[in-house]
Amino acid sequence: MKVSAALLAMLLVVATFVPTFASANEIKSDIVEESSSAILIERDTGAVLYEKDSDKKLPPASMTKIMTMVLIMEAIESGKVKLDDKIRTSEYAASMGGSQIFLEAGEEMTADDMLKGIAIASGNDASVAMAEAIAGSEKAFVQMMNDKAKEMGLKDTNFVNPTGLPAKDHYSTSHDMAMMARELLKYDLITKYTGKYEDYLREDTDKKFWLVNTNKLVKFYQGVDGLKTGFTNEAKYCLTATAKRDDMRVVAVVMGAPSPKKRNAEVTKLFDYAFSQYTTNKLFDRNHVVKEVEINKGDRATMEVVTSEQVSVLMKKGSKDEKITTSIKMNENLQTPIKEGDPVGVLTVKVDGKVTATSPVLSSQSIDQASWWQLMKRTVGQFAKASDGVK
Score class of each variant (00 low, 15 high):
Ser95Leu: 07
Arg263Gln: 15
Asp84Pro: 05
Ala38Pro: 02
Lys192Asp: 05
Lys316Tyr: 07
Leu217Phe: 08
Lys320Glu: 15
Glu42Thr: 09
Leu239Ser: 04
Met67Arg: 07
Ile120Trp: 00
Val32Arg: 02
Tyr50Leu: 05
Ser276Arg: 14
Lys65Met: 15
Asp342Lys: 08
Val250Asn: 05
Ala386Glu: 10
Thr45Tyr: 03
Ser359Pro: 06
Arg245Thr: 04
Pro19His: 10
Asp55Tyr: 04
Asn296Cys: 08
Thr242Val: 14
Lys86Gly: 08
Asp321Val: 08
Val267Phe: 10
Gln369Cys: 12
Thr45Glu: 03
Ala386Met: 11
Glu322Ile: 11
Lys155Thr: 09
Ser23Ala: 12
Asn213His: 14
Ser259Gly: 08
Asp272Val: 04
Asp30Pro: 03
Ser90Met: 05
Leu49Met: 13
Lys186Pro: 01
Ile27Pro: 01
Ala121Gly: 08
Glu292Met: 08
Arg202Leu: 14
Arg263Ala: 00
Met63Trp: 04
Gly226Leu: 10
Met145Cys: 07
Ile31His: 06
Asp321Gln: 11
Thr214Ser: 13
Gly98Leu: 03
Val290Gln: 00
Pro59Leu: 05
Gln277Gly: 07
Phe275Leu: 10
Leu71Ile: 10
Pro337Cys: 07
Ser259Tyr: 04
Met255Arg: 11
Lys317Tyr: 12
Gly381Phe: 09
Leu154Tyr: 00
Arg378Gln: 14
Gln143Asn: 15
Ser4Met: 07
Thr242Lys: 06
Ala178Glu: 06
Glu51Thr: 08
Met303Gly: 00
Cys238Val: 02
Ala15Lys: 05
Asp188Ile: 05
Val344Glu: 00
Thr173Asn: 09
Arg43Met: 11
Val32Trp: 00
Lys155Trp: 08
Ile76Tyr: 01
Lys155Pro: 04
Lys385Gly: 11
Leu239Cys: 05
Val251Ser: 09
Thr191Cys: 09
Met315Arg: 06
Leu239Asn: 03
Asp176Ile: 06
Thr16Pro: 04
Met303Arg: 01
Asn331Trp: 01
Ile27Cys: 01
Tyr197Asn: 10
Thr336Val: 15
Ile76Thr: 02
